[in-house]
Design a protein around this nucleic acid. Structure first.
Lengths: 463, 463
DNA sequence: AGATTTGTTCTTAAACATTTT
DNA sequence: TAAAATGTTTAAGAACAAATC
């Protein structure tokens, strides 16, 4: 029997002891999940400490540990040694982002890629469809890409600072697919990956699906802090790190070279697998003056470099290039075979044709121009510029003051005809006091529509 | 200290107690893995029982349980209550199958799809590339397929006995990709899925990557035995079942309707998620006389029906249709967004065009004709016919007598210029006494090449 | 700076379940 | 059919580690 009565102690959660069935840890985890999903326990709520709940329920406290663990693995709660256990910010809510076009809704949420440039692609598709060797594109052969396609891929990435050979590049079905292949091939459930505090929400969701734990690392204006990374690595067994150095999603931070080198040192020391998502390389390398190199070149043996063509060339043809160290090669290829079998050689060929014909560069130029225009427009409305934010980002990270719950804010704005995403969607760990909105600039049908959207947004936020 | 000396007991594995470090279970698991990978412990070897090893190492036996568990999860060993723990048949060897074309090697291993029919596809690609709405195929829109593509999909599957609506069908990037989405979305690491004793090896590998445990169920000439399924369900917490009822890979078994109903009853009773891979529907529905219906129609609410077009229409355009119950919908869509974002609408459109124009049916007719011819040829060489084997299968399941290790046999035949796969690659669980080869009939460049391959194979086996 | 709070990990113990003999 | 062999699952205990106050 418990020694104390807890009637007078405030415990945020008091599961009904009488209805608890064996096995206790499962029963308890189920109750906890139910109360979180029902909304009885709101995000951020501090749960009773393990020992206190154990005392209350008259169980050994490691049984509570186990029950809490079940819910932590499901992403419902998170624990901080010394502070306690808390309901996760996105518990019981999917933050998966996808294109869900709705009439009369201005899309500033999902980040597209100025789809108006797609007019340039039709020709290339036709040209490929008329090639003599089309039939060779229609078999199971060359599951990681046809040699000449890989050569074009390497040419494409060369100005981004990537140097690799045919054996260490593979074509997959878009950058998200590359991430799925990477996580499934190189990590196991329970492994930990370091990420920025705010990171790409579909990466968070993917990690959740595969039961990989994200460890949020503090950053400053130059990106992730090497000291905090070092600290976390020294006290936790961390297996990998996810970064978007040339333009982080959602913060738009561009990591300067000195910081890349500092981070690389820690990554090398702890032998982390670096996952570098360089989907915005085309906006940075050769465009931003002091840009040096991708982190892949600092750590080629322990890195996976992912270069999607959805943002730079065409979003509908699902193609991304993966470049990887030799030690990772076998596992990645196996992952590709088991998740994709292969990527459509036809799609890859169209991208190849676009690259070889120079059309891809033309498209990139147009997109950069559009990025300039839309960013200027944005800064007319929200003239807050910070150091080391990418000036040409396809989206912006807008600090907001409004004291309103994230879901309510998104819903409010949706009623006003604008879709945006609140910063809680991008939280890799615990709640934060600062709030932001991610504003996509590359997803409206026209500049006019974007302007209307920004006007509505500003009006709403100023109220 | 241990009570007994084990000098006189035969223990197949004696880890060095002195070098064992804390944590013991990890250290022990590492040693075990090393000794299996090195080949010191051969597949099939019985490991010391937990209690015996514990006694030898002077540890509590549940510490051994934990160490063994680590290796079991990695697929290195498997445990059978009452019998002991054994080194897995495919421990430390990848059984992933992919197209790896080599000159001078006749492909009877990897199953392709009579790629000579691809000549019929070029026209459709051109026609699609000339459509007015091509640009609409190049965006992020309609991530699960454009409505008219889904309509065509449902039309395509209608003769197979599938009735569903737009909301419960999605287009993904091939059948293997559909399986990846299904497993990642609907199952968690540690979950169990029932399969045939011999099953599709890339399904085995995929399950391994995602840490889903396969529970092999015994079968007879009609396919999986409902009694054994019932038995396993009653004593293990099984979450799903994987079946290829219209033509099982690799056994070619076609499950008759009565058996489907018996199995469906058990599946319903234990609320398993049924994963029905119906990639060979086109060889069966409307072709085989007494074919009735897919199992999906018996259990629509708890099933995922997967209909790939790689075998029936074109292997290079990566398209498969998924049909699912409403209860599974949300999770599957989330899985699609996080693993694929979307499938190329262009590829899906070409398949749609092929279906709507009737060309797809023409291709299917050709493939069926080729299947007839090649199967006749096969039976000339190996005239062993069993009941309920699919007469038109793209591969055959050849029982062999030869007393030779699987890898050696494959290597031997490769030296003779023929690539085949040994039955151990398809084992979902423990080793079996019977041996088979899976002989692909749809992968050679010509009938002549197939004939040469079969001749070589027969000659080798008769020796 | 040290005690306290809180979460983590490993090992052991006991009860259980299944298969084999 | 019952006993023995063998693996499984849950719970508890102990030592540890980090963060907070």
């Amino acid at each position: 029997m418990p020694v104390n009565s807890f009637e007078h102690y405030p415990m945020s959660w008091k599961p009904d002891k009488a209805t608890l069935k064996r096995p206790f840890y499962q029963s308890l985890a189920l109750y906890l999940e139910r109360d979180i999903v029902n909304g009885f326990l709101a995000p951020g709520t501090k749960l009773p400490p393990q020992r206190e709940l154990a005392d209350f329920l008259d169980l050994n406290f490691t049984t509570i540990t186990r029950a809490y663990k079940v819910c932590e693995v499901k992403g419902l709660i998170y624990a901080v040694t010394g502070s306690g256990t808390f309901v996760a910010p996105n518990a019981a809510r999917s933050i998966t982002i996808s294109a869900e076009k709705q009439a009369n809704l201005i899309e500033l949420g999902f980040v597209e890629s100025f789809e108006e440039t797609n007019t340039l692609i039709k020709d290339s598709i036709q040209r490929v469809s008329e090639k003599k060797y089309v039939e060779q594109l229609l078999t199971y052969n060359d599951p990681t890409g046809i040699p000449h396609q890989k050569t074009a891929a390497l040419n494409w990435m060369e100005p981004f600072g990537i140097h690799a050979d045919q054996e260490h590049v593979a074509i997959v079905s878009g950058a998200q697919n590359a991430l799925a292949v990477t996580l499934a091939s190189l990590f196991e459930p329970g492994n930990r990956i370091a990420t920025d505090l705010y990171t790409y929400s579909n990466f968070i969701e993917l990690a959740k699906i595969l039961h990989i734990q994200l460890i949020p690392i503090v950053g400053d204006e130059y990106g992730m802090l090497p000291d905090d990374l070092e600290k976390q690595c020294s006290q936790l067994n961390i297996h990998g790190i996810f970064l978007m150095p040339s333009c982080s999603n959602p913060t738009t931070v561009m990591i300067p070279d000195f910081r890349k080198r500092e981070l690389a040192e820690v990554i090398r020391k702890y032998r982390l697998i670096l996952i570098e998502d360089d989907i915005y390389a085309f906006l940075t390398a050769g465009v931003i003056e002091d840009y040096r190199q991708p982190m892949y070149q600092l750590l080629p043996e322990q890195s996976v470099y992912i270069c999607g063509t959805s943002k730079s060339i065409c979003s509908g043809l699902r193609v991304a290039y993966m470049v990887f160290g030799d030690a990772l090669r076998e596992k990645i290829l196996k992952g590709i075979f088991n998740i994709n079998v292969k990527t459509s050689s036809f799609d890859a060929e169209v991208i190849t044709e676009l690259i070889l014909s120079g059309k891809a560069h033309q498209i990139v130029s147009q997109k950069i121009q559009l990025a300039k225009t839309t960013n200027e427009l944005y800064f007319d409305y929200f003239p807050i510029k910070k150091n080391h934010e990418h000036p040409l980002s396809f989206f912006r990270w807008l600090p907001i003051e409004k004291e309103i719950d994230a879901q309510a804010l998104e819903a409010d704005l949706q009623r006003h005809g604008v879709r945006v995403f609140h910063s809680v969607r991008f939280l890799s760990g615990q709640s934060r006091p600062e709030k932001y909105l991610r504003i996509a600039l590359a997803s409206t049908n026209s500049l006019q529509e974007l302007e209307i959207g920004l006007t509505k947004l500003k009006k709403y936020l100023d109220n």
